[in-house]
Design a protein around this nucleic acid. Structure first.
Length: 274
DNA sequence: ATAGGCGCCTGCTGGC
DNA sequence: TGCCAGCAGGCGCCTA
């Protein structure tokens, strides 16, 4: 579900609500998430204070005192938000953190449970974890030369390249399609076939669509909510994603949908011939 | 070395 | 109404 803009919105919402506060108590549901919760973490987390809330790619990092870091991924349907402690919870809510006196709670809710929460003992362990996964740079840190190298390093479609978290961190299915539309490049084009000026246009388009989506507080297609439980509005601004058969907002031709890189892929056959 | 398929899960929609 | 297929903001593993 959530890509970089959605995760960034959650982080920005959580930051003022969490920094400086303590996990007075916590409760963990029985259903397992993608990465197994270790029972020993309960005792380690209890009483910890939140020092910082950060994002790296689609990962959320809660930095705690005593160097602990809770690393959360929202998967497809994950939600991470603060609500009054007496708010009703359903069977899909898996983690409950009482903040200070428990008048408010940080909760992790995830219908499909592709999400995860993992406790690391230090920031260097977190770094090693990202290193091991080969997590690429944040989109705004992608340099022209690096980008060119990555496009040329393998013979695969632009869509597959954009979805590869090792190339650039944070882009998912929605914003890959949106960036390709903005750059006016077909998703099936091979990275090895891009002229330098096309590559540069795509690099910039990724940043543009992500920044716009952050301003709109993310795209709520189905399940996504921000750090307070509210929907974003970027779904109203999408140019191609989820619009198969509808007229292209630029030229009026019907938006097409194909299967590419294992994912549903939307594009305008007329605009994206680059 | 890449694409494609599957698995992990649950819920929703559309067709018959 | 019921059933079944197909779909979904992710990602890791396997095979050819």
């Amino acid at each position: 579900m959530p890509e970089l803009p959605e995760v960034e919105t959650v982080v920005r919402d959580l930051r003022p609500r969490l920094v400086g506060r303590r996990f007075a108590d916590l409760r963990v549901g029985r259903k397992k998430l993608r990465r197994r919760w270790q029972p020993a973490w309960n005792a380690q987390l209890k009483g910890r204070q939140v020092l910082a809330v950060r994002r790296r790619g689609k990962w959320i990092l809660l930095e705690l005192d005593t160097a602990l870091t809770l690393v959360v991924h929202l998967g497809m349907t994950g939600q991470f938000f603060v609500v009054p402690g007496d708010t009703a919870a359903d069977r899909h809510t898996h983690l409950f953190f009482d903040l200070d006196n428990g008048s408010e709670q940080l909760r992790f809710r995830d219908i499909r449970r592709f999400g995860s929460a993992t406790l690391f003992a230090s920031s260097s362990e977190v770094d090693a974890f990202f290193e091991q996964g080969g997590l690429g740079p944040e989109p705004w840190d992608v340099e022209t030369v690096y980008w060119r190298e990555r496009l040329l390093s393998a013979k695969r479609s632009l869509k597959a390249i954009l979805l590869d978290q090792r190339v650039v961190a944070g882009v998912g299915n929605i914003y890959a399609d949106e960036a390709l539309f903005t750059a006016r490049l077909p998703p099936t084009r091979l990275g090895t076939d891009l002229a330098p000026r096309d590559a540069e246009r795509l690099r910039k388009a990724v940043v543009t669509v992500l920044e716009r989506a952050i301003v709109q507080r993310g795209s709520s297609i189905r399940n996504y909510v921000d750090g307070t439980g509210l929907k974003g509005s970027n779904q109203e601004k999408l140019m191609v994603y989820g619009r198969m058969g509808e007229p292209c907002r630029r030229c009026g031709a019907p938006v097409a949908r194909i299967r590419l890189a294992g994912r549903s892929t939307h594009y305008c056959p007329s605009c994206q011939q680059g």
